[in-house]
């Protein structure tokens, strides 16, 4: 759970770095996206590893939730969780399931279409198509709002999950305060960055 989580946190940062170029340097975005889409190592080794990481993370999360629910078959009449723990730490399953649902949409939006483009329709390589395709995705208001809400939930998930992963792998030492601080900065900055990208493209559509 923790190791797959840390792997996904690392991936998220890499994803953000590529995506932010769609705002500040569209040509670079096209170049990097094309590389990611056609590089053999990325496509046939890193991409399956990433998909496996996501599946392992949510499968273990759901298994954990089911086991933990059984550990208290009779619930309290009154349970004051706010007195001793954060909402984020107690509701990882809720924020996680929302992010999972979002991933379904996200995969449909980009990955499924990309697979169809390359392997079903067998279109020729087009290194400059990515920027326009991405901006077009954010044209509908409903999709932009779903992305924004999902990133807020992702932020709440990361707020607890990132630092918690270190505790699970046995890291609780003089660096833990720093890890906590970095977690808070990361869990706000990265989702906020993704929200900015979605809103930027929604309000700056391509006009021909």
């Amino acid at each position: 759970m923790a190791l797959s989580g840390l792997f996904l946190v690392f991936f998220l940062a890499q994803h953000f770095v590529i995506n932010i170029t769609s705002v500040i340097a569209p040509d670079t975005f096209n170049e990097w996206s094309h590389f990611m889409g056609y590089n053999g190592l990325v496509q046939f080794i890193l991409q399956p590893v990433l998909i496996a990481g996501v599946i392992v993370h949510f499968a273990m999360g759901i298994a954990l939730e089911l086991k933990n629910n059984k550990a208290r078959a009779i619930k309290y009449k009154q349970y004051n969780g706010n007195a001793n723990s954060s909402w984020m730490s107690r509701n990882m399953i809720i924020t996680g399931l929302v992010v999972l649902a979002f991933l379904g949409l996200h995969m449909y939006d980009f990955w499924v279409h990309e697979m169809a483009y390359k392997y079903i329709e067998v279109n020729p390589e087009s290194p400059t198509r990515y920027y326009e395709e991405t901006v077009l995705k954010f044209e509908p208001f409903w999709r932009t709002i779903i992305y924004v809400i999902s990133f807020v939930l992702l932020s709440l998930h990361l707020w607890h999950g990132f630092a918690s992963s270190f505790q699970t792998v046995g890291v609780n030492n003089k660096y833990s305060a720093g890890i906590q601080t970095f977690t808070k900065i990361y869990s706000i900055a990265i989702p906020l960055g993704f929200i900015f990208i979605a809103l930027y493209h929604h309000f700056n559509p391509i006009t021909h």
Binding site: A71, H160, G170, V171
Partner: peptide, 27 residues
Amino acid sequence: FGNCTNTGACEVECPKGISLENIARMN
């Protein structure tokens, strides 16, 4: 018993102040 998800509630409520560091050590 259930599994730890690091909410930290145990440490806060422990009457003897047992630290979460022990859980990391056990892991």
